[in-house]
């Protein structure tokens, strides 16, 4: 289908499609669980780990960097939950603290990398801004493997995730390990973040999680449909963004997010029932009907 494109772009397309699907699906649970900004904190929190892994491996070792990002993301989750449970620091402040200090640490490590190996820096800074050019077949394989594992887990645990996201206390009373299930959702969020880093970058990864899910939410009242829609919007923005990025030589991450934002804006305007236009029309219809009733001298029930 895309064989008119260079091989590298084809690889990128496959990668970003799966990435869009995966972050769309996980993003739904993040958005519904009021964890949209936690996703942002986690994506920034991965940076020091990615950098340290780069230093330890002495170069761009893709899987090792992802692992490093995962570990420091876990640390971020740990700090968030300690602050929330044991101190007077509120969740919003805790998120901002983790985000900014971990990110600062990441930048400091970035300068170490810069100082250490001249020219070896290539491949590292893609994790900050995100880039597609660096995406070669091996990297894409990792992204696909992680994305598929995530999707399989969500498919298997759909019922459990839905229950815990909606009513954790009820889940606990029914005998489900609600906390463990919740933590699994958090881990998948982290996996999605780490998977997306090399393509989209630390700065915009959260958008990949939040925007497609929020757009999908406007169209439907069913969780399953919301997941499919978010996946479709994520994949669509991924493909469109990658094509735009390769044709006008702009960075991949922002291009993807631009299309996602476009999807969101369209949904916000035109979605049936929840869209702004639909709601304005509904209000107008209600008003006309009410006024008609009033003039006809109808009694309210």
């Amino acid at each position: 289908m895309f064989d008119w494109l260079p091989y590298n772009t084809q690889v990128v397309l496959v990668g970003v499609t799966l990435l869009g699907v995966c972050s769309g699906v996980i993003g739904c649970f993040a958005v519904l669980g009021r964890r949209a900004l936690v996703g942002d904190a986690l994506s920034h929190a991965t940076l020091p780990g990615v950098g340290i892994a780069y230093l330890l491996a002495g170069g761009k070792h893709f899987a090792f960097m992802l692992l490093g990002g995962f570990v420091s993301g876990l640390l971020g989750i740990g700090v968030l939950s300690i602050l929330k449970r044991f101190t007077r620091i509120r969740e919003d402040a805790a998120i901002a603290i983790v985000l900014s200090t971990f990110y600062g640490g990441g930048i400091v490590i970035a300068t170490v990398i810069q100082a250490q190996a001249s020219g070896g820096q290539a491949g590292w800074d893609t994790f900050i801004f995100g880039q597609s050019v660096g995406m070669i077949w091996d990297d894409a394989q990792w992204i696909m493997a992680l994305g598929l594992v995530t999707l399989v887990i969500v498919a298997l645990l759909f019922k459990e995730f839905k229950l815990v996201a909606f009513d954790p206390a009820f889940a606990h009373v029914q005998g489900w390990p609600a906390r463990a299930i919740d933590f699994t959702m958090m881990l998948l969020l982290l996996v999605a973040v780490v998977t997306g880093l090399p393509a989209v970058g630390v700065l915009l990864m959260a958008a990949m999680l939040i925007i497609p899910a929020s757009a999908a939410r406007l169209w439907t009242y069913r969780l399953s449909r919301m997941l499919f829609l978010a996946a479709a919007i994520g994949a669509g923005s991924g493909i469109a963004g990658a094509l735009l990025s390769s044709s006008v030589a702009l960075p991949l991450g922002p291009c993807i997010i631009l299309f996602a934002a476009l999807f969101f804006l369209t949904s916000l305007m035109f979605a049936p029932e929840r869209g702004l236009l639909a709601r304005a029309f509904q209000r107008r219809r209600d008003r006309i009907a009410l006024l008609a009733d009033l003039r006809a001298g109808k009694e309210p029930i």
Partner: peptide, 16 residues
């Protein structure tokens, strides 16, 4: 505001 239907919620009772 969670995206589930009334039947979905009642079905959760059978999850146990």
């Amino acid at each position: 505001d969670f995206p589930v239907s009334v039947l979905d919620v009642v079905l959760m009772g059978t999850y146990g």
